[in-house]
Design a protein around this nucleic acid. Structure first.
Lengths: 332, 332
DNA sequence: TCAAAAGTGTTATCCTTACACCCATGT
DNA sequence: ACATGGGTGTAAGGATAACACTTTTGA
């Protein structure tokens, strides 16, 4: 973007050094659930997402990201999508420590866990290690009672005029008390916990928190800088997107059973789904086709193996729900 | 984002100067349709979106954007949302001309057209001036036949093996020939026209185009740099979002009739809607409440004036469609 | 034979779409 | 009277959610 004004305060901006950091949330789904790739080359420091600075020779932002990921993890990424750009001057401790300004651009990448790779210092971790309250596949997660208590305290100590809005926010994000759990609100939940101070990095960053450091859930500073926030953004985006775009298939092997597919969606969404209806939903949308082959590794009756119909990526770029159209013939 | 690796090629990145440009697509809806605010302080150059560089004293990216917009247009923005970060090294002519690298971050802002403002060098323009093929409110837009011809030529001259995929792409984006018009694909359509060379800025940027410069639709280089692409991104996002979040109301006056609301949605989506069903859809979702007042300025029977129920912003942060859940009681 | 998973049928309910119609006002 | 827009009724068709049931394998 180029301004057309006479330059005014541009000089000060140019002098200030600026680094753009490209970071990737690389997601795969294994038999045990959703996994993210994190790096910890130096065990004295918390783990981090694969990332590196944008350099002059990178033709595009995405190309720069792919280069860093290739170098650090050996992955040649397939599906990649930009998530968000974060640039608050004081958003976390390590950003403040650096001279100049750091802008970070987060990306979401979907891969098959089993592709060839070079993984020095990298490992797959369940994303629910970082967000244990997000996994409702086996009912309400255990940690939620602690979360609930923390939030209840925050509400109880609210000044009179803020009480209602705090209650409302808790009800919407965490479905408390009479609300419904909305699995897409991962980021909103994280941000609430951060603000209250129930998450250790809020204290590390020196944010003004209601809760004391000791009240924070989970022991360690699990991810560097604002990487947990970026991960939350990625999960929110992915949970939203699986509902209207066939992105799950980027995470599936070439052939899979219906239950494999269902388990993958459940892993991402963090909720259990109704088997028969899930099957019909997918069938009905024409997303898969039968390969004819069967597998009997499932423990019960052998299951048909399906493959993704790549054509639908062209057929239905967005299913589009919502507005009642008035169909009119073209005016010619 | 901070890398935990030993610094390797970081030095080269730090030395290179980097500018972050913040740009805003400011949208309003007037009686005649959707409008964007553009600036043209220097009439010898094409118009541009309000924008300016990120400066050290800007605490957050959004704060920087608000400051620039306030200064350039007098608007104190309400609803603001980050769209996308663009950083291709060679994406447009003016970026290549500058020393160092320019990264631009686009934002979408929704305002009421009638708010107090200071508009030197700024003016409201219908966004369909920049995308005339996107307005289907009165049936198929006239310019589409020219677009169709251009695309047909591009398909006809395709090498054998690329023919099918070009046809498919035209069918999906422009609904040709047996396809359906999907109003959300504004960006995809713009990118196709850019690649083919049917849009003048493709030639200005020196992109490798199929079509000769003379074949480009629309005479002028209507917006600076990649601002037309950013505008396309904004329209796509907004057209998608009105379907699942109550964002239209950011564009409405405090009180409005149902037809006002319908006209606003139609203006954004670029299609006509079914009156009775639109009404019931909105009513049923509890988005509005009757103020009791009526207006007889409508030409026919007086219409009730409604107001947006601000509460729903809390009640339904996302309506959530798609996955068949299995409802289970908490395991306690 | 039984557990485990695959896969089908059926129904009540709700939402979407389309069409038809009446109502209240200004000219 | 009639044009213009406001507003309601209703019925067909489709999608959703819930429940029950049959089928096919391995142990």
């Amino acid at each position: 973007m180029t301004r057309s004004d006479p330059p005014r305060s541009r000089a000060s901006a140019a002098k200030d050094s600026m680094t753009v950091e490209l970071g990737a949330v690389i997601v795969a789904v294994g038999p045990d659930g959703p996994r993210v790739l994190v790096r910890q080359p130096d065990t004295s420091r918390p783990a981090a997402l694969p990332s590196g600075p944008l350099e002059p020779h990178h033709r595009t932002l995405e190309a720069g990201l792919r280069t860093w990921v290739e170098e650090q993890t050996g992955y040649d990424l397939g599906y990649v999508e930009q998530l968000y750009s974060f640039g608050d001057a004081n958003r976390h401790a390590s950003a403040r420590a650096q001279p100049g300004r750091i802008l970070s651009i987060g990306y979401l990448a979907l891969v098959h866990e089993d592709k060839p790779r070079r993984m020095e210092a990298s490992e797959w971790r369940s994303w629910y290690e970082f967000f244990p309250w997000e996994d409702w596949r086996e009912g309400e997660p255990a940690i939620l009672s602690a979360v609930r208590d923390g939030i209840a305290g925050w509400i109880a100590e609210a000044p009179r005029d803020e009480r209602k809005s705090r209650e409302e926010r808790a009800r919407v994000t965490f479905g408390l008390p009479g609300g419904h759990w909305n699995e897409e609100l991962v980021l909103e939940r994280y941000e609430l916990l951060y603000e209250i101070g129930l998450v250790p990095e809020a204290h590390r960053d020196g944010a003004a928190c209601w809760a004391p450091r000791e009240a924070a859930l989970m022991d360690a500073d699990s991810l560097q800088a604002d990487h947990r926030r970026i991960l939350a953004t990625a999960i929110s985006r992915l949970r939203g997107k699986i509902k209207y775009r066939p992105v799950v298939f980027e995470l599936m092997p070439p052939r899979f059973t219906f239950l494999d597919l269902q388990r993958a969606v459940e892993a991402l969404a963090g909720v259990e789904l109704h088997k028969a209806n899930f099957r019909r939903l997918v069938e009905h949308q024409g997303l898969v086709e039968d390969t004819g082959a069967k597998t009997s590794k499932t423990g019960g009756r052998p299951a048909s193996l399906f493959r993704f119909r790549r054509e639908v990526l062209l057929e239905r770029p967005a299913s589009g729900v919502g507005l009642p159209p008035v169909r009119r013939s073209a005016k010619t």
